[in-house]
C-alpha cells in the first residue's frame, strides 16, 4: 500500500509539496532535484507528466511540458523515471501529476499497475472532476494508490461530496485561474477549509500561485500544506546551462537552500 493511504499520513501538518516536470531540463536532473528536495524537507513530490494541451497550467509549466515532450518524455517514461528515483533513494511519497488523456491513451489499468510497481503513491489529474473519477479511483485504491481530488473556490456545494470520499490529501486551488505565480490571493479559503475539516480528516494542501516564504507561512497556518510548482520549474529552467556543467552540484545546493528558506 502506498504511503498516502496510511492512517499516519492523515495526521501530517505543514506539508511541503514541490512539483517537478519530469524530464525538464533532463531526466537525470529530475531525479537529483527530487533527492535534493527530499533532503531539504519536502514531504511529498508531485511528479509532472508533460502533456501537449495542459489547460489548467500557466505558461511556465506549459513551456516546460513542450521542452520535455521534445526530448521524448511521455507518461510511461515519467513513471519509469519515478521508479529510478526510488532506486536511487527517494523515499517520500510521489504523486503523478497528469492530465486524463495520457492516462486513457496508456490504458487506466496498465498505468495504475505500472505506477504501483514504480513506487508511485498518488495520482493527481486536474481535468478529471469528481463525477468522472469513480472508475479510476477504485482502480487506484485496489493498488494502494490515492487519487488526489481538487477543490476550488467555486466548488461550493460540491465540497462535501468531494472531501467526503477523499484519499491522500485534498488539493485546494488557491484562486481562480491556472498554475503560475501570483502576488495576491483574494479568495478567503478559511470557510472551505472549515467545511472540509467537518467531513474528513484528509489533510488539505493549497496550491496555484505559491512562490514565497510569506505565502507558505500564510497557507501553513490556514491549511495542512502547500504545493509549489511553477516557481521551482522556473528555478531549474533558468539554471539549465549551469546544470550541464561543473556547477551542477552548486545549483542543486542552491535549490535546497531556496526550499529551506521557503519553509523556514
Amino acid at each position: 500500500m502506498g504511503q498516502l493511504m496510511s492512517a499516519e499520513f492523515k495526521n501530517r501538518k505543514n506539508l511541503f509539496i514541490p512539483y517537478l516536470m519530469a524530464g525538464d531540463p533532463d531526466p537525470g536532473t529530475t531525479i537529483e532535484a527530487a533527492l535534493a528536495l527530499e533532503e531539504a524537507g519536502a514531504d511529498v513530490i508531485e511528479w509532472g507528466v508533460p502533456y501537449s494541451d495542459p489547460l489548467a497550467d500557466g505558461p511556465v509549466i506549459e513551456q516546460a511540458a513542450i521542452r520535455s515532450i521534445a526530448q521524448g518524455m511521455n507518461i510511461l517514461k515519467a513513471v519509469e523515471l519515478a521508479g529510478r528515483a526510488r532506486e536511487q533513494g527517494l523515499t517520500i511519497p510521489v504523486v503523478l501529476f497528469t492530465y486524463i488523456n495520457p492516462v486513457l491513451a496508456t490504458g487506466e489499468s496498465l498505468l495504475v499497475e505500472k505506477a504501483a510497481r514504480a513506487g508511485i503513491d498518488g495520482l493527481l489529474i486536474p481535468d478529471l472532476p469528481y463525477e468522472e473519477s469513480g472508475g479510476l479511483k477504485r482502480l487506484a485504491r485496489e493498488h494502494g494508490i490515492a487519487l488526489i481530488p481538487l477543490i476550488a473556490p467555486t466548488s461550493r456545494k460540491r465540497v462535501k461530496k468531494i472531501a467526503g470520499d477523499s484519499d491522500g490529501f485534498l488539493y485546494l486551488v488557491s484562486s481562480l485561474g491556472v498554475t503560475g505565480t501570483r502576488e495576491q490571493f483574494q479568495e478567503d479559503l478559511s470557510d472551505i477549509i472549515r467545511e472540509v475539516n467537518n467531513v474528513t480528516d484528509t489533510p488539505v494542501a493549497v496550491g496555484f500561485g505559491i512562490s514565497k516564504r510569506e505565502h507558505v507561512k500564510k497557507f501553513h497556518e490556514l491549511a495542512d500544506g502547500v504545493v509549489i510548482g511553477s516557481a521551482l520549474v522556473r528555478f531549474l529552467h533558468e539554471r539549465r546551462n549551469k546544470l550541464n556543467g561543473s556547477e551542477r552540484n552548486s545549483v542543486l545546493a542552491e535549490l535546497k537552500q531556496f526550499v529551506r528558506e521557503l519553509i523556514s
Partner: peptide
C-alpha cells in the same frame, strides 16, 4: 444526465469550472 452520448461526452474540466 451526465452529458454522455453512449460512452462519449461528459465533463472533463478543472474543478474551478464545474460550478459554471
Amino acid at each position: 444526465q451526465l452529458g454522455r452520448f453512449g460512452d462519449f461526452g461528459g465533463k472533463y474540466v478543472p474543478e474551478t469550472l464545474m460550478h459554471a
